[in-house]
Simulated scan of single mutants.
Amino acid sequence: MSMTPAPSPRTSAYLSALTQEIHKKLQRARASPLQRRNLLQELFADVALEVDDRARDIILNGKDIITPSEDGIEGPLCFYDVLADYFVWAPENGNPILDLIVQLWSQSFASHIFSLLFHKWLFEVQLDNSEVLLRYSSALVQGATNVFWIDIQTNTRRFQSLFRYLMEEVALVPERLKKIPLQAQRDLFLLLSRFILFYNLVDNLESFLKQFPDFPTAFFVGSPADIFVIELSDQ
């Protein structure tokens, strides 16, 4: 189970400024019903952008953060990758953003943004409220589903690192998986089943099937392998 490395002061200052910009855009979205969808779509696009050379130099100063390519992940290093790490190390800086996302919960792209920015936070920062955990884990699955479909529709792997984290650092790590309610665990495994071939992580399939949570329909449907095949064939 890997831990997110701490950023340098220079990187922290840069990500703090970036966080403030995200907060401002969310405030604008909350205050502007007519522009809300467009603003949230723009913000989603912003956090999904590949890190440019100037930002990369700041963010990777002193090799703070392992890039996707260095970690064996296909796909670019995107802003959401480094922000997700940042909100684990400085969760208090992510709280104002999280509060606004919750207020915009029902809006298009809110769950997309949540899943990109807070997927590591959900599993690596201590949360004790079971009701909140259920809400956040449901939003994570919904948002991740949406962004994975975007990858399929565009035939890219921009969100590969999110998929890989959910597979290798959550689904295959019982102590993290058990942080979310059982229903959310089931939904997560169904989600991963649908996209595992697209993201080419079939090497994990045997371990993945062994970790499958219990399903109330298992008596009628069959084993984890049967459930996996059903989800895959429903795509």
Rank of each mutant, 00 (worst) to 15 (best):
G143K: 06
Q235V: 13
Q103E: 12
S8T: 15
P76N: 07
S108F: 00
I180R: 05
K25G: 02
S115N: 04
G143W: 03
N155D: 05
G222L: 10
P216D: 13
Q103P: 01
T145Y: 08
A48T: 12
S138D: 14
L191S: 04
K210G: 04
L104Q: 08
L140E: 02
T156L: 03
L177M: 08
S161N: 04
P213Q: 08
E42A: 10
A48V: 02
E124M: 14
L177I: 05
I59H: 01
K178H: 12
P9W: 03
L100M: 12
S233Y: 00
K178Q: 15
L49M: 11
T67E: 15
L15I: 04
P5N: 07
I113N: 12
N155E: 11
S138L: 03
R157H: 13
A90V: 04
I152A: 09
N204V: 05
S193L: 11
Q107C: 15
A225Y: 09
E206Y: 13
Y80N: 03
F148N: 06
N95S: 09
K210H: 08
E231Q: 15
D234K: 12
D187K: 14
S207Y: 00
R56L: 12
Q27T: 12
S12N: 09
G75N: 09
L232M: 13
M167A: 11
P91F: 09
L134V: 04
D64C: 11
I65F: 11
P216S: 01
S69P: 03
A171N: 02
P213V: 05
